[in-house]
Amino acid sequence: MSAHQSCRHLLASLSEFVDGELDEKLCAEIERHLADCENCRIVIDSLEKTVSLYQTVSKTETVPDEVRERLFHRLKLDEFLES
């Protein structure tokens, strides 16, 4: 990544860039930079992929029924368990 001086300078903005929250000027600067910096393209792609993997995995995680039952019981809400 250190091939260019600007890589370092842009690092702190990459996260906002992938969220599309960066102001237009900086966004254009990053896009220009990405056109000829393969390392930064890899960092951005893997940054986006990292976030999306965490999101994908968390969607498949279920909460065990017993956790809900124990919670309702602890809160003395057993009568509402069936609803």
Partner: peptide, 10 residues
């Protein structure tokens, strides 16, 4: 600053 990325692997 945040350390520079070391892992540049696609």
């Amino acid at each position: 600053a945040e350390p520079e990325p070391v892992q540049i692997v696609d």
